[in-house]
């Protein structure tokens, strides 16, 4: 790849330009090193600095689609919902697939507050999920499974509060909103570690 100094300079320290022909991940390096990294072209040698195909994204367009929620609460919309309101949402929209107490199925078990030392025997929100914000992100995008997107922001906050309550993570009078949800500390939070498999002939991981 002809990895142009201009393009790579922006990325120094975080990445490298490669061709996927290398098996060893390309680590961060100087622009010079990166220019040597690839050989077979991702971009033709005479490619311009920019093609400008496509159009600028308007702020409205970004706001419409940028619906993910991160652990620090970034992306959470305005709104609020209580455990009691969440019970009402759950009994209409969720109970058929997840059961009256979140354990009966037929689909994924949502409740398990049995904590574990070495390894879990059943994995659910209460004993396995590291972040409460993921509940908002996922339910807003994907649930209820047959009518995703049907719930209002308030209803999502409410049902998240109720799922957390069923898992014995928040009290019965809890209210979830853009401030309280990221502040919830999940029991499994500190169990997650980064991948340490690296290939090679060392010990099996």
């Amino acid at each position: 790849m002809r990895c142009r100094a201009l393009a790579c300079a922006v990325l120094v320290g975080v990445t490298a330009c490669g061709t996927g022909e290398s098996s060893v991940p390309l680590m961060s390096g100087t622009p010079d090193a990166m220019m040597l990294a690839g050989t077979a072209g991702d971009l033709p040698a005479n490619a311009p600095a920019r093609f400008d195909f496509g159009r600028r994204a308007s702020d409205d367009r970004i706001a419409l689609w940028d619906i993910d929620v991160r652990p620090d609460g970034a992306g959470l919309p305005p709104g609020r919902g209580s455990v009691a309101e969440g019970r009402a949402v759950y009994d209409v929209h969720c109970v058929a697939c997840h059961g009256p107490t979140g354990t009966e199925g037929p689909n994924d078990q949502l409740v398990n507050s049995e904590q574990w030392d070495l390894y879990p025997t059943g994995r659910a929100v209460g004993n396995y999920w590291p972040y409460a914000t993921t509940l908002y992100d996922y339910i807003r995008k994907a649930m209820p499974q047959l009518t995703p997107g049907i719930l209002s922001h308030d209803q999502v906050y409410a049902v998240v509060a109720y799922v957390l309550y069923m898992n014995e993570i928040v009290p019965e009078d809890a209210v979830m909103d853009a401030q309280t949800l990221p502040a919830v500390v999940m029991p499994a939070r500190d169990k997650f570690v980064v991948d340490d498999r690296i290939g090679g002939s060392g010990p099996v991981r």
Partner: peptide
Amino acid sequence: PTHTRDETSKYTDPLGDGTVRQFSLA
């Protein structure tokens, strides 16, 4: 990382020593 459901609840590996391996991508 955003820590979506499919990189926390699923596609993670409890290792038997009290830890869970995350972003086990390769």
